[in-house]
Amino acid sequence: MARTIIHATMTLDGYIAESDGGVDWMFGRPSAPEDDAVVQKVIARIGAVVGGANATQTIEDGEIPYGGMLKVPVFLMTRTEHAPIERDGITYTFVVDDIAQAVAAAERAAGEGWVSLLGGSIARQCLRLGLVDELHLDVAPVLLGEGIPLFAGLGRRIELERLETSAYASETHLRYRVLR
């Protein structure tokens, strides 16, 4: 059975991107093989992705989940119907206004793999609906002061159980189970 996770790199003050969507702060930091191994372990288990579609419902180079490293089905939330798009061996399916339907479809596509939820809004919606099994957070040692938050505005308390913690050269890696 698929497991649905929030997998995100975030700043210590809780942001996943700058206010304009920029993520330059993620790159150019010292790294250790152990940091890469933690992230690769998660990526190897991902069998599908759920994220948000852009306004034009196209797939731009900077919007490809995991930089195109994963060749798994991607389900994108949208407000209007759109035919699936195939690009570089990845099928992008657009789901209109029903995040639970998108997650269910992604779980079917992932099989025994994991469904990765991308983006703050998607993550918060799925947490509110009880659709998230685990959080996998890679915390970078930087404070942006403002930007796009991962959890701000969640609007409810959610208890977590710590499963794993590690820290190496560039990030602190946190893994939590969502308690129901």
Rank of each mutant, 00 (worst) to 15 (best):
K41E: 15
F94I: 15
L70M: 13
E86K: 08
A37K: 14
P65S: 06
P73E: 04
T93Q: 04
E60T: 15
D88C: 03
I64P: 01
L76H: 04
A53V: 13
A44L: 07
T58R: 12
A44H: 11
R79K: 14
G52W: 00
E86P: 01
G89A: 07
E34K: 03
M69W: 07
Q40G: 07
E86N: 09
K71R: 15
D35H: 08
D35P: 11
A44R: 12
E60A: 12
V74L: 06
G47A: 10
V39C: 08
F94W: 07
F94D: 06
G52C: 02
I90A: 05
T78S: 15
V95R: 00
E81Q: 10
G62F: 14
G51I: 10
T91D: 00
E60W: 07
R79N: 11
I64D: 02
Y92T: 13
I59M: 14
V50E: 09
I59S: 02
T58I: 01
P84D: 03
A53E: 02
V42D: 13
H82Y: 10
I59H: 02
Y66K: 01
G89T: 08
F75A: 04
V74E: 01
M77E: 03
V74T: 05
Q57I: 05
F75M: 04
A83Y: 01
K41N: 11
V95I: 15
H82S: 14
A44K: 09
Y92S: 11
G47E: 04
G47W: 12
G67M: 07
G47C: 08
H82W: 07
D88Q: 11
T93W: 00
D88T: 03
V95Y: 02
T56W: 11
G51V: 09
H82P: 00
E86M: 08
K71I: 09
H82A: 15
G62W: 09
P65M: 10
P84Y: 06
E81M: 06
I43W: 05
P65T: 11
G89H: 07
I43L: 12
N54C: 09
M77C: 02
R45S: 12
I64C: 04
A37T: 08
A37P: 04
P84Q: 02
V49Q: 04
A83N: 09
V42A: 10
D88W: 00
P65G: 11
D88V: 11
G67K: 08
D36V: 13
D36I: 07
G51Y: 07
P84E: 06
T58Y: 02
G67W: 08
Y92M: 10
E60R: 14
V72E: 08
D88K: 09
K71L: 11
P73Y: 08
M69L: 15
E63F: 12
Q40H: 13
E34P: 03
G51P: 01
I59T: 07
T91H: 02
R87S: 15
R87P: 09
G68D: 11
F94M: 01
T91C: 06
I85Q: 08
G68K: 14
P84R: 08
A44E: 10
T58H: 03
I90C: 11
G62C: 02
I64R: 13
T58A: 09
I43N: 01
K41P: 03
R79F: 01
A48D: 04
Y66W: 14
A48Y: 01
A44M: 02
V72P: 10
Y66M: 10
I64H: 02
A83C: 03
G67I: 13
A55L: 14
E81L: 10
G68I: 14
A83P: 07
F75Y: 14
